[in-house]
């Protein structure tokens, strides 16, 4: 549904995005992650036809966003970063206005339906200007999904929402994502992990990684990190554990605690547990961390992190990280 090739955008002399290439198909929820100023909003603005690209091509459902702008725009629902609302209109009138511009049949019924989806039916007759931030966000979302768009583009959709509403909105997005194509940007990494089928991490206008949340995690984590706690005598365990297969860099943290690394594709915990028990020690605790999405994000968007050509991202990021840890 979305096909972006070689997208570049310059604001005057500043290059905001450079040579972005990605696609998103029907039934896919694509998450757009990146630090402030990475170019997420800029990309979305180009995708929705608000600003033209400096070079490159964007196709929405087969329509070029520059040459066949109106046809492409018909397919898009868009929630911009600054929620576009008319403060002097009532919520209902605002949505009716947008429904009319979208040429929706039985507009009133549809507006009622959407208001219910975002739990704003009680404020339908109230003025938009009197709404709280989260409510404004919800009305903005309502506007974006009015015409059941094939492509939904949401710029930080859950910002300012209370926890209950965040869950609601995520549910709406996930429902829509089964039949439509959703592109959303967010700074909440757990949200991206939970909602999206695929993540696109961009930094300084470049794509630095693109994969499913799970793949990103295992790809970047060269090893798993295990912390082991026993009741005294941890020191004696160091050589024992070191001799177990697949375990490296065993470190004694204090008299009760050990830390060591294992390779990703092996679970060493049963072996370790047996070794501890057979040595006659009491096993108190054993925890295994995989790299969190936050850590991955920080790794990928570090200033000195090399920008990799897209094909080789998967091959080389793992090594890059292993080198770091030595």
């Amino acid at each position: 549904m979305i096909k972006v090739t070689g997208l570049t955008k310059d604001y005057g002399l500043r290059r905001a995005v450079e040579n972005l290439t990605f696609t998103a198909s029907k039934g896919e929820i694509l998450g757009f992650l990146g630090p402030n100023g990475a170019g997420k909003t800029t990309t979305m603005r180009i995708l929705t036809g608000y600003i033209p690209p400096t070079s490159g091509k964007v196709e929405i459902g087969g329509f070029d966003i520059v040459d066949k702008s109106i046809e492409a725009r018909r397919l898009i629902g868009y929630l911009p970063e600054t929620v576009p609302l008319y403060n002097d209109m009532t919520v209902f009138d605002y949505l009716m206005f947008m429904a009319n511009l979208r040429n929706i049949k039985q507009a009133e019924d549809r507006v009622d339906e959407v208001l219910e989806m975002v739990h704003m039916e009680e404020r339908a007759e109230g003025f938009v200007g009197n709404l709280s931030k989260g409510m404004r966000q919800r009305v903005g979302l309502a506007q974006a999904i009015l015409h059941k768009p094939e492509v939904l583009i949401l710029d930080e959709p859950t910002i300012g929402l209370d926890p209950a509403q965040i869950i609601e909105v995520r549910k709406i997005i996930q429902e829509l994502g089964t039949e439509h194509t959703v592109l959303l940007s967010t700074h909440i990494l757990s949200e991206a992990q939970q909602v999206c089928n695929r993540l696109l991490i961009i930094n300084k206008g470049h794509i630095v990684a693109e994969d499913t949340p799970e793949q990103l995690q295992s790809r970047l984590t060269g090893s798993k990190h295990i912390t082991l706690r026993v009741r005294c005598g941890a020191e004696d365990m160091v050589p024992v554990i070191h001799d177990l297969p697949g375990i490296s860099s065993v470190r004694l943290m204090d008299e009760n605690t050990l830390e060591f690394e294992t390779s990703v594709n092996q679970d060493a915990r049963p072996d370790v547990a047996r070794a501890v028990i057979s040595s006659g020690l009491d096993l108190l605790e054993m925890t295994q961390d995989t790299m969190s999405l936050e850590e991955i994000f920080l790794q990928l968007t570090r200033d000195d992190f090399p920008v990799l050509p897209q094909e080789s991202v998967s091959a080389s990021t793992g090594e890059e990280l292993e080198e770091k840890e030595e």
Partner: peptide, 11 residues
Amino acid sequence: SGTLELLLTSP
């Protein structure tokens, strides 16, 4: 108010 972005991205 940013509503121009809305109008210019609607059909």
